[in-house]
Computed example of a mutant assay.
Amino acid sequence: MSGLKLDAGLHGRIAIALILAVGLSIAVPGFASIATAASVFENVGLIALIGTGIMLTMVVGQLDLSIASVAAVAAIIALKIAGVSLLLGILVALGVATVYGAAIGYVIGRTGINSMVLTVCTLIGLRGLALVMAPQRPAILPGGLFWLSDALVIRMGPVTVLGLIGIGVVAIIGVLMRCTTTGLSMYAVGGHAERARGSGVDTTRVYMVAFAGSAVLGALAGILAAVRSGSASGLGFESFLLAGITAAVVGGVPLEGGRGTVINVLIGAFIIRLVSTAVSLGGIAGSFESIVIGSILLAMLLLDYWLRKRGGSRSGSRRTFNQTAF
């Protein structure tokens, strides 16, 4: 149950996000506008899908590095079948992603192979598959369905349809992690796999659920991005992996497993989108954006280290006092 608690640094992260929002609104011309808010909201929804998928694997003490390639393959599948039926294409793509993710989780659970090594291999393989599926030019959304591209970016004040879909799906994942046996088991396995196994938890099944969830969320993000742009290529989703991991880590999901919530991912996604949007509006080179986001990521890691060290010191002090008193 401890994994369900918001991390000790969440309040600090919320404060950072608010300070950034206010400061950038003052410093960057055009930042404080409904259009900018809608853009941030839309991209937070998309990044949060990827970040939440990665978070699922981080919670169980693993890491999925193939999610961007999964997004590319799923998007191409959906658009290629869209000529017959887009709904069928989406269902097939999500089904393929589910089978792939479950297979990866099964292999990890049964063999104990390092998830980063395994998913780097599949990242490369799936990227090659995506390039084979769309070798000459990107897969294109059929002309009769381009109205969906417009529908996804319909703005309702500071929100868009795509952003609502992304954040809505992420919210559902958050509820499932809090309120289901499988969700609680994920935290138990990430906290201590051997202890969880000794308590009767099927760790292989938990890994299968985590990696299947990661693959499905990655596939959904890829499909939404492809429908929004009207096309999908084998190399069009490479930024997804870095954005997702950054959102999770900046938001406070620990690398060692056992903790993390969708709230952490949403806060992290919001912070990095604020920075990206400000850089774009300010006409600053994209390399500067990478420097700033990298600095924020390092600062958050140091904050987590300091909080853990402080928490450990306090815990040690309480134990010393109790031993002395009794």
Rank of each mutant, 00 (worst) to 15 (best):
M1I: 11
G3K: 04
L4K: 05
L6M: 06
L10N: 00
A21T: 15
L24Y: 03
S25A: 12
A27S: 06
F31P: 01
F31L: 09
S33A: 08
A37W: 06
S39L: 11
V40M: 05
F41C: 04
V44L: 05
L49I: 04
I50E: 03
T52R: 00
T52F: 07
M58C: 07
L65H: 00
I67V: 14
S69R: 06
A71R: 02
V73P: 01
A74E: 06
A75P: 08
I76A: 01
A78F: 08
L79P: 01
K80E: 04
S85E: 10
L91V: 11
V92W: 10
G95C: 14
G95M: 12
A97D: 02
V99R: 05
Y100S: 11
Y100M: 07
A102M: 12
Y106A: 15
Y106V: 14
R110S: 12
G112D: 13
I113W: 06
S115Y: 01
V117C: 03
T119R: 04
V120P: 03
V120N: 03
T122N: 08
T122F: 00
I124Y: 03
G125Y: 10
R127G: 06
P135L: 04
P135R: 02
G143A: 13
G143Q: 11
L148R: 05
L152N: 09
V153A: 02
I154W: 15
P158S: 12
L162P: 01
V169S: 00
A171Y: 04
L176W: 00
L176M: 02
M177Q: 00
C179L: 01
T180N: 09
S185T: 03
A193C: 03
G198M: 09
T203Y: 05
T204Q: 13
V206P: 02
V206Q: 14
V209T: 05
A212Q: 01
G213W: 07
S214T: 09
A215L: 02
A221S: 10
L224K: 08
R228I: 12
R228M: 10
R228K: 15
S229A: 14
G236F: 07
F237L: 15
E238D: 11
S239E: 12
F240C: 10
L241P: 13
A243P: 14
G244Y: 08
G244L: 10
A248R: 00
V250H: 02
V250I: 11
V253Y: 07
P254E: 05
P254R: 04
L255E: 15
E256A: 13
G257V: 06
G257D: 01
R259D: 07
L266E: 01
R273D: 08
V275K: 02
V279M: 05
S280V: 07
G283E: 06
A285F: 15
S287E: 08
E289M: 15
E289Y: 09
I291A: 14
I291N: 10
V292Y: 04
S295L: 05
I296N: 05
A299M: 13
L303D: 02
D304K: 04
K309L: 12
K309F: 09
R310Y: 10
G312Y: 13
S315R: 11
S317I: 14
S317M: 13
Q323C: 10
